[in-house]
Amino acid sequence: MTLAPSTVVPMTDGTAADAAIAQAWDAGAEDALERAYRRWSPLVHGLAARAVGPTEAEDVTQQVFLSAWRRRETYDPAQGPLGAWLVGITRRAVADLLRQRHRTAEVPSTLHDGTAPEGVLHDADRDDLLALYEELERIGDPPRQILLLAYVHDRTQKEIAELLDLPLGTVKTQTTRTLARLRTRMGGAR
C-alpha cells in the first residue's frame, strides 16, 4: 500500500501546528496572519474556486483574510479551531458574492448566460460543500482525515485503518458518526 506523502499529513503534528497558529492569532501576534494564510489559504481559495470560479476566488480569498484580520479580536478559540472560523468567513463571503451576482444578473446588459465554468459547483451544492468543510475543520483529525481519505482519495475503510494505524472498528465508527454529524450541516440551498 503506497500513498503519496502529500495526501496524509501526520495528524498529531498537523493538529498541534494548527493549534499553535490559532494561539498566535488569538494573542494578536504579528506573524499570525502570514502563518494562518500559509496554512489555510489553499483551502479557502480552493473552496472559493469550487463555489464561484477561479477569478473571483482570488478576490474572495483576499477578502476573507483581510476581513478575518480586521476582526481578529472576535475569534474565540473556545468556539472552535481557527480553520473552521476562516472557512465560516469564506462561506459568508461566497454567499454575499452569489447574492450580488443574482442581483446584477437582472441587469439586462449583463450578457453572461449563467453556465458554471468547469469544476464549479451548482448552486445547490455550493453552500453544502463549504458547510461540510467548515464542519470538518471543526471536527479535526482523525475523523476529518478518515472522511477525506474515504471520499476524496477513494480509500476503503480497511486501507484507511492501515494508513492511519487505527483499528478498523474505530474507522468504521468514526466514519458513520462523522457522516451523521455532517449530514445535519447540509441542506441549506436545495
Binding site: R50, L121, D125, D128, L129, L132, L147, L148, A150, Y151, V152, D154, L179, L182, R183, M186
Partner: peptide, 9 residues
C-alpha cells in the same frame, strides 16, 4: 450525499 459532494469536489 455527504460523500457524493466530497467526491465530486
Amino acid at each position: 450525499r455527504v460523500g457524493v459532494l466530497l467526491r465530486r469536489a
